[in-house]
Amino acid sequence: MDSDDVSQWFGEYLDAFAACGRGERDTASLLAYYGVPLLVTTDEGFFALTSDAQVVAVMQQQVDGMRAAGYGRSEALGSEVTVVNSTSALYRGTYSWQQSDGAEIRRVTLTYLVTDGPAGRRISALLVHSS
């Protein structure tokens, strides 16, 4: 893993996620970026998503909320990549989710475990930081 390559790949993921939030792409298209199983941690709990359908369902909830809030774009407020070893890296980012007019919907900090395996590069864990 190389931090520049991870950053570039992650930028592609963020573009795809934003397109889903705006209703321009189907949420299932995110399976090109998420691994199965996918581990998710939030203040509400820990979840091991073990099927494509479970991953899409959880991402669909997020996307539905973004669409309902009038999501237009994300602004990166800061990010960093920590290469763990030759097959994994941690990507931590803080984002402002905004409406088309720039009004902030939500500010979120996330840490992702990005792995490189048989299916290619994937997000294997999603950790949502407390607000």
Rank of each mutant, 00 (worst) to 15 (best):
Phe10Gly: 03
Tyr13Arg: 04
Tyr13Glu: 00
Tyr13Ile: 01
Tyr13Trp: 09
Leu14Thr: 05
Leu14Ile: 07
Asp15Phe: 11
Asp15Arg: 12
Ala16Pro: 14
Phe17Pro: 05
Ala18Val: 11
Ala18Pro: 10
Ala19Phe: 01
Ala19Ile: 00
Ala19Val: 01
Ala19Cys: 01
Ala19Glu: 04
Ala19Ser: 07
Gly21Val: 08
Gly21Phe: 12
Gly21Ser: 08
Arg22His: 06
Asp26Gln: 06
Asp26Glu: 04
Ala28Arg: 11
Ala28Thr: 01
Ser29Thr: 13
Leu31His: 09
Leu31Thr: 04
Ala32His: 11
Ala32Lys: 09
Tyr33Trp: 00
Tyr33Val: 03
Tyr33His: 05
Tyr33Pro: 05
Tyr34Thr: 02
Tyr34Lys: 06
Gly35Ile: 07
Val36Asn: 07
Leu38Gly: 00
Leu39His: 14
Val40Asp: 01
Val40Asn: 10
Val40Gly: 10
Val40Pro: 09
Thr42Cys: 10
Thr42Leu: 07
Asp43Pro: 13
Asp43Thr: 10
Gly45Ser: 02
Gly45Ala: 10
Phe46Pro: 07
Phe46Cys: 10
Phe46Arg: 15
Phe46Met: 12
Phe46Lys: 10
Phe47Asp: 14
Phe47Glu: 12
Phe47Thr: 06
Ala48Ser: 14
Ala48Ile: 04
Leu49Phe: 12
Thr50Ile: 06
Thr50Leu: 09
Thr50Gln: 13
Thr50Cys: 08
Ser51Asn: 02
Ser51Leu: 05
Asp52Ile: 02
Asp52Ala: 06
Asp52Thr: 02
Ala53Gln: 15
Val55Leu: 02
Val56Ile: 13
Val56Cys: 01
Ala57Val: 12
Ala57Ile: 07
Ala57Glu: 15
Ala57Leu: 03
Val58Ala: 01
Val58Tyr: 08
Gln62Pro: 09
Gln62Glu: 14
Val63Gly: 06
Val63Leu: 03
Asp64Gly: 10
Gly65Ile: 15
Gly65Lys: 14
Met66Tyr: 13
Ala68Tyr: 14
Ala68His: 15
Ala68Gln: 15
Ala68Gly: 10
Ala69Phe: 03
Ala69Tyr: 11
Ala69Pro: 10
Gly70His: 04
Tyr71Thr: 08
Gly72Glu: 07
Gly72Ile: 01
Gly72Lys: 04
Gly72Asn: 01
Arg73Cys: 05
Arg73Glu: 11
Arg73Tyr: 15
Ser74Ile: 13
Glu75Phe: 08
Ala76Gln: 10
Leu77Lys: 05
Ser79Gly: 10
Ser79Lys: 12
Ser79Thr: 10
Glu80Phe: 05
Glu80Pro: 03
Glu80Lys: 12
Glu80Ser: 04
Val81His: 10
Thr82Arg: 01
Val83Ile: 14
Val84Leu: 03
Val84Ser: 01
Asn85Ser: 05
Ser86Ile: 00
Ser86Cys: 01
Leu90Trp: 06
Leu90His: 08
Leu90Asn: 07
Tyr91Trp: 14
Tyr91His: 06
Thr94Asn: 00
Tyr95Asn: 09
Tyr95His: 11
Tyr95Arg: 11
Tyr95Thr: 08
Ser96Gln: 07
Ser96Asp: 13
